[in-house]
Amino acid sequence: MTRLTRAEAKARTRERLLDAAARVFAQKGLAGASVDEIAEAAGYSIGAVYSNFGSKEQLFVELLKEKANDRVIRAAEIMADAEPDEARRAFSQLVIEVADKDADFAPLQAEFWLYAVRNPELMETYAERMREPRDLLTELVGRSVPDPDRAGELSAIVIALFQGLVRMRRVDPDSVPDELFGRALRWLFTGAEADEEQK
């Protein structure tokens, strides 16, 4: 059996803590979950949580950032390898996968948004952690629009569409047909291009 390096062991511990935290937070909410429960679910001591994340809130914010980064990386892969129509279909499939198969994603986002609104001192921490995935998406969008200066606005709308459609599909799957996100992206980017042409 190969022994893990210290860095590999730390990365594995971090990953297991994040996985356990996703399950516990989704079931109990941020306020209802305890560091003890998360550590136990991951098979570690409470000290492992604090040494890797500092606090329960920091762990939660890091969890959201990781999940958001995963989605943006997937979006980058789609945009790199697909024609526009194929990419829209793949993006729609991403909404379906998250809504139908990642049962923790929407509750985690809703939970932390509520917690941050109720605890304004966390709002900036939340915003700061979410800037990295949003900036990555903005860079991707900037490559495919006539005016890269509008990419930040467009990426904000894409994120809002994605999150909103995931939540709607979790509650009422029939209200979000499989191709809806792809069509919404086409409408959004076609509208943005038309707006540029009118300038």
Score class of each variant (00 low, 15 high):
Gly142Thr: 09
Thr138Ile: 06
Arg118Trp: 00
Asn69Thr: 11
Trp113Gly: 15
Leu59Ser: 03
Asp104Lys: 04
Ala106Gly: 12
Ala80Asn: 14
Tyr44Pro: 12
Asn52Leu: 09
Asn52Phe: 00
Ala80Gly: 15
Ala127Gln: 07
Val117Ser: 10
Val95His: 01
Arg134Val: 12
Gln163Asp: 15
Gln109His: 09
Lys101Thr: 07
Arg134Ala: 09
Met130Phe: 03
Gly47Val: 06
Glu111Ser: 14
Gly47Ser: 01
Ala76Glu: 09
Pro146Glu: 06
Leu136Glu: 04
Ile157Met: 13
Val166Gln: 02
Asn52Gly: 01
Ile46Ala: 11
Gln163Gly: 15
Glu83Ile: 11
Ala41Gln: 05
Trp113Met: 13
Ala68Pro: 08
Gln58Arg: 08
Tyr115Pro: 12
Arg150Ile: 12
Trp113Ala: 15
Gly47Cys: 03
Ala76Phe: 03
Ser45Glu: 12
Trp113Thr: 15
Lys101Gly: 09
Arg167Phe: 05
Val98Ala: 07
Arg74Phe: 05
Ala41Lys: 02
Asp100Arg: 01
Phe105Met: 08
Ser55Val: 09
Asp85Ile: 14
Gly152Trp: 01
Phe60Asn: 11
Phe112Asn: 05
Arg131His: 13
Tyr50Lys: 05
Asp81Arg: 03
Gln109Lys: 09
Arg89Val: 15
Val95Asn: 04
Ala127Phe: 07
Gly152Asn: 08
Leu114Glu: 15
Phe112Ile: 12
Glu124Pro: 02
Ser144Tyr: 03
Lys101Ala: 14
Arg150Asp: 10
Leu165Ser: 06
Ala42Thr: 08
Asp135Ser: 08
Ala106Ser: 11
Gly164Lys: 05
Ala75Lys: 05
Ala90Phe: 01
Pro84Ile: 07
Leu165Ile: 08
Ile157Tyr: 00
Leu114Trp: 02
Glu128Arg: 02
Asp102Pro: 01
Leu122Pro: 01
Asp70Arg: 01
Leu114Asn: 14
Glu86Met: 04
Leu136Asp: 12
Ala80Pro: 02
Phe60Ser: 13
Ala39Tyr: 08
